[in-house]
Measured scan of single mutants.
Amino acid sequence: NQASVVANQLIPIQTALTLVMMRSEVVTPVGIPAEDIPRLVSMQVNRAVPLGTTLMPDMVKGYA
């Protein structure tokens, strides 16, 4: 099973992502693949992302 990127904390809207905000976890449905974590650093979320939420491509500006 492929690991996805999951929020390690509440990430407020417009926040630039850092490594400490994300973790990898095998979840359903599958979100952004964990191997993309380095690419996500400094990208902004376009909505508030609660703790434990799987990051989906449409939540990160410039990802999809």
Rank of each mutant, 00 (worst) to 15 (best):
N1M: 15
N1R: 09
N1W: 13
N1I: 13
A3Q: 09
S4T: 02
S4I: 02
S4P: 01
S4M: 01
S4R: 00
S4A: 03
V5A: 10
V5S: 03
V6S: 00
A7S: 11
A7D: 01
A7I: 04
A7N: 01
A7F: 03
N8D: 13
N8G: 08
N8H: 06
N8W: 04
Q9P: 01
Q9H: 09
Q9C: 08
Q9D: 07
Q9R: 13
L10W: 13
L10N: 14
L10A: 14
L10T: 12
I11V: 06
P12H: 08
P12F: 05
I13M: 12
I13N: 14
I13R: 12
Q14N: 15
Q14W: 15
Q14Y: 14
Q14E: 15
Q14G: 15
T15E: 08
T15V: 09
T15Y: 06
A16H: 13
L17E: 01
L17R: 00
T18R: 11
T18L: 08
T18C: 05
L19F: 12
V20I: 10
V20M: 14
V20F: 14
V20H: 14
V20W: 13
V20S: 15
V20K: 15
M21D: 04
M21I: 03
M21A: 04
M21N: 07
M22T: 01
R23V: 07
R23E: 04
R23Q: 05
R23C: 06
S24H: 08
S24Q: 08
S24A: 14
S24N: 06
S24C: 07
S24Y: 08
E25F: 06
E25S: 12
E25D: 11
E25P: 01
V26I: 14
V26P: 07
V26C: 08
V26N: 11
V27T: 12
V27C: 06
V27K: 08
V27L: 04
V27I: 06
T28I: 13
T28A: 11
T28D: 13
T28P: 01
P29M: 04
P29Q: 05
V30K: 11
V30D: 07
V30E: 11
G31Y: 03
G31M: 02
G31H: 02
G31C: 03
G31I: 02
I32R: 02
I32N: 01
I32G: 00
I32A: 02
I32D: 00
P33K: 08
P33S: 09
P33I: 06
P33L: 08
P33V: 07
P33T: 07
A34W: 07
A34C: 07
A34Y: 06
A34G: 08
A34H: 06
E35P: 06
E35K: 15
E35Y: 14
E35L: 11
E35G: 15
D36C: 09
D36G: 05
D36R: 08
D36F: 14
P38G: 13
R39F: 11
R39C: 06
R39P: 02
R39H: 09
L40P: 00
L40F: 01
V41C: 06
S42E: 10
S42W: 07
S42K: 09
S42Q: 15
M43A: 07
M43F: 10
M43L: 15
M43K: 11
M43Q: 08
Q44C: 07
Q44P: 08
Q44T: 14
Q44L: 12
V45Y: 00
V45C: 06
N46W: 09
N46D: 10
R47S: 10
R47T: 13
A48E: 14
A48L: 10
A48Y: 12
V49I: 11
V49W: 03
V49K: 01
P50K: 11
P50L: 07
L51M: 13
L51A: 14
L51G: 12
L51S: 12
G52H: 07
G52W: 04
T53V: 13
T54Y: 02
T54A: 06
T54I: 09
T54V: 10
L55A: 01
L55Y: 02
L55G: 00
M56V: 10
M56R: 09
M56W: 05
M56D: 04
P57G: 07
P57L: 04
D58G: 10
D58F: 11
D58L: 07
D58E: 13
D58I: 08
M59R: 03
V60P: 00
V60L: 12
K61R: 15
K61E: 14
K61W: 12
G62C: 07
G62K: 06
Y63W: 14
Y63T: 03
Y63R: 01
Y63K: 01
A64Y: 09
A64N: 13
